[in-house]
Structures are given as structure tokens and as C-alpha cells.
Design a protein around this nucleic acid. Sequence first.
DNA 1: AGTGTATCCTGCAGGC
DNA 2: TGCCTGCAGGATACAC
Length: 295
Amino acid sequence: MPELPEAETIVRGIRAAVSGRRIEGVEVLHRDVLAVTPARLRKGLAGQRIEGAGRRAKNVLLDMDDGSVVWINLGMTGGVMSLPRPPHTSAARVRYGPIATHPTVVFLLGGGTDLVFNDSRRFGTIEHLDASASRARSRTFGPEPLTDEFTPAGLWRGLRASRAPVRSWLLDQRKLAGVGNIYANEALFLAGIHPARRARTVRRHEAEALHSSLRSVLTAAVQAGGTTIRDYRNAQGGEGAYVRELRVYGQEGSHCIKCSSIVQRLVFGNRSAFLCPTCQPRRAVARRTRRPGLT
DNA sequence: AGTGTATCCTGCAGGC
DNA sequence: TGCCTGCAGGATACAC
């Protein structure tokens, strides 16, 4: 579910509520999302002050005053919300009403405010890493696409080194941080590149177009507060408006906005890809068969 | 190296 | 109404 724009929207939505607050307690309702025992998490966080909130790839980060960092991976259905503490509740049965339907881990910030990790499927994870381990984790991700470290030339070099389908390359967090299935499909449509094309067949001008479309799609999605298909909610429980701007994702059978062809869905890498067969031809395959001996 | 498959888990939509 | 199947914004481990 949540990709870079959704995680970014969540971070912006909780930043004011968490910055400078102390963690008074941690309630664990489902320990299977934790990489450590609840006792150890509590011990590591008790009394710590939250310096601020940030994001790396699709992860929401809470920076602690001792330099350690809480890494929240949102998985498919995870969300972080800043909510008023419900009255008369016990740890075993915390109810936040219809906004947080599946509270999983709750950080008690005092002053009547709870920071709730809500995750119905519980594919999300929470880890507490010391400063060194956090930096090491951060290094496992590729460049952030909305920063200067992401360049057309760098994208082209990366694509040229891979035989994987270009969409698979975009989804690989080690190559590029924060892009998931929705925005990969949208950016490939805008750049006119078939999602199943081998990354190495993408030409320089196409890589430049893809760099530009990734930037514009992700920027617009952040501005729209993300995409709500079904589960995603921001830190206040609201929906993301970018769903209204999707051009191909989930649009199987409708007309392409550029050429009126019928948008297709195909499955590879265990996930759906959406594309316009006219605007996103599999050119590389045709070229290869016509130029034998060039392998 | 790449890829197909399975796994974690829950909810919802659609067909019958 | 109920039962069944398929599908879902992610990430990883495994066998080819």
C-alpha cells in the first residue's frame, strides 16, 4: 500500500505532534510486527524524547534523543496516526474508533496523545536501531528520487546494468528508494516504456523521460497527500486524493488518456502491471529480433 | 542473475 | 444471506 508519497504524507502529519515529546510507554497489541521483544522495545524507548520524524524510502522514522531511530515499515496496510488517548481503556483492548481499526503498537506520548501504528494485515514491522545500525540500514536503500542524488545519468547507468524487467528494477528498493507498484506503473506510462521491457534496453532519452516522470508523479502524489485505493489513511485518518489522477493503475479496460487504446493488465513478478499497448510498445523485443548477432 | 513461487495476514468484492 | 475464490500500495526466502 504505502509508497513514498504515502509515507511522506504520514511523516508530515505526525511531525508536529511528536517532536519534542517523551515516550511514556509502549503498548504492544500484536507482537508479531516487532523485530524485538516488547520488553526490550519498552526498555529502549522509555523516557526517550522524540527529536523529530523523518522518512527513508517507504519507512517512517522517529529520531530519538540518544541518536537511535525507530524504523516503521508500513507494509501493505500499515499507517501511523496521531490520535487522542481514548478514555477508560486498558492495554488489552484499546479502541480508537473507526479511524484506527487495527491498532497494533501504540506509543504513549502523554498529554492525551497517542501515536498509533495501525495495520490490519500486519505485514508492517517496527524496529529500534541504534545510530550506527540505523545508518547502516539507510545505506541498503538506493537514492531518494526527489533529491539531487537521483539523476538521469545515474538512472540510465543503473538500468543498463540489469537484465530484469524495468518495473522490477524500479520496485527494487536497493536500486531506487520508495517507488512501489502504483507509481512505477504511472511513471512508466508517462515515459512511454513498457513495464516488462528489460531494463538494459532502455535508451538514454527514455531514461531521461523516466527520471522526469518519476519526479513529476511522486511530487504530484505528495502534494495530493498520497493515493487511497482502499486502506491508506494519513496521520489524521484522511484519504489521499491522488487516486483521482491515476492514469493506468487499476484502469484495466478503460481508454488510454493519450490515445484511447484499451488499458491492459498483465501479471509478472507476482504483481499486476497496467499499461497502454500503443503508448508503451515492446520496442526492444522487435529490435532484437531484427538485429541478429548483436548479443 | 533473474524469476516464479510461497509466505506472512486480513478484508473486501464478485460470482454463484 | 452465505460460501468460495481471487485480489491487494510490501518484503523476503527459496528452488531452479
